[in-house]
Nucleic acid binder design. Structure first.
Length: 359
DNA sequence: GAGACGTGGTT
DNA sequence: TAACCAAGTCT
């Protein structure tokens, strides 16, 4: 172990003293720390901030209070409650994992084993540790963004944590400081410390219980840690979204492929260009009347920009629906997962006016 | 190892 | 405002 700045005991003592006064003690998933509730919260909290998660967690627990309830539900309803939260593979994996828990573990999350937990889809090394520490109080090491940031600064760990050598070093530090007792408070304290004091933007060093030993602070370089991922320019993709309404004002939706962007969610039919859109209409809805194309808007994702041009149209003919195609009434929304920009379009721009193409 | 995967907040 | 980032995991 490389030059510790504190013994584990001293680190834990200072951290827990700070946590008692400044930690978060009344988050929804802290009220009843059942493995199921902790599991759901940990999945929702992946790459997502607490304030965003809270309302989703409350709705999810109200609808799916047990593993069994979740396993009994259909994927559409699970994704419906995940709509707007992002990273939808989390929702799909959660649903899949709930059925595994029912079928392979007797309906109980395998909290006795880190490895058994991590075999469930969506649960990696850190989340498995968090579930065990938070729900059982058994010693388990976590390494999330908060812990990475705090330990990176405390020890001035150079390099981006996506590099395996850096990740190994951070895991070793996390392991070194994690206590055998008070693990529930300790792990929560580490996350609260990173989220509220040792923030990326403006760390509150003057209030920090480790200010005297923090290596980054000692060098006046706390803002340089942790090192960020090398960035590349975002490519731009363009797409046409068909806003096809039938005589009753319902909108045509298509289910996205089960993997990839918005996997398993419902979206408007998408086309690369006008020709493809027109060809599809000719083949499936020959009586469709096209309106004037709306101006494009841009949706920025982590890895690309999506420029969307909505194309309004109306038709009278019935269109066969199936597993991947349906009519959707914006006035009486069904419990299905909708891609966020689509939901936004349907709520803010409905009812769609159909202006003549040449007007 | 590198890229994919979302959305909302912050600077 | 455009970039950057947040309680990571999977392929």
């Amino acid at each position: 172990m490389p030059a510790p700045v504190l013994t584990p005991e001293e680190f834990q003592r200072r951290l827990l003293a700070w946590f008692e006064r400044h930690g978060r003690h009344d988050l929804p998933w802290q009220q009843d720390r059942s493995p199921y509730r902790v599991w759901i919260s940990e999945i929702m909290l992946q790459q997502t901030q607490v304030a965003t998660v809270i309302p989703y967690f409350e709705r999810f627990m109200a609808r799916f209070p047990t593993v069994q309830a979740l396993a009994d539900a259909g994927q559409d309803e699970v994704l419906h409650l995940w709509t707007g939260l992002g990273y939808y593979a989390r929702g799909r994996n959660l649903h899949k994992a709930s059925r595994q828990v029912v079928n392979e573990h007797g309906g109980e999350l395998p909290v006795h084993s880190l490895d058994a937990l991590a075999e469930l889809p969506g649960i990696g090394r850190s989340t498995a540790g968090a579930i065990i520490a938070q729900s059982r109080g058994r010693r388990a090491v976590i390494l999330d963004g908060n812990v990475k940031r705090s330990l990176s600064r405390l020890h001035a760990v150079e390099g981006w944590s996506g590099r395996s050598a850096v990740a190994r070093r951070l895991w070793a530090l996390a392991e070194y400081y994690t206590p055998h007792e008070y693990v529930t408070d300790y792990t929560q304290a580490m996350m609260d410390f990173g989220a509220t004091l040792c923030r990326r933007g403006q760390p509150d060093c003057p209030s920090c219980p480790f200010a005297d030993v923090c290596v980054a602070r000692g060098r006046g370089e706390e803002r340089r840690f942790p090192e960020s991922k090398p960035r590349k320019v975002l490519p731009t993709r363009t797409t046409r979204m068909l806003l096809l309404q039938d005589a009753e004002g319902r909108v045509l939706l298509e289910r996205r492929p089960s993997s990839g962007l918005w996997g398993g969610l419902w979206s408007l039919p998408q086309f690369d260009d006008d020709e493809q859109l027109q060809a599809w209409l000719d083949a499936h809805v020959p009586d469709a009347e096209l309106g004037r194309t709306w101006s494009p808007f841009t949706h920025v994702f982590s890895h690309f920009r999506l420029e969307i041009t909505p194309q309004p149209a109306r038709c009278n003919a019935a269109l066969a629906v199936d597993e991947a195609r349906r009519w959707y009434d914006p006035g009486e929304p069904a419990s299905i997962g909708l891609a966020a920009p689509v939901k936004s379009l349907l709520t803010t721009m409905a009812p769609f006016t159909l202006e003549p193409t040449g007007a």
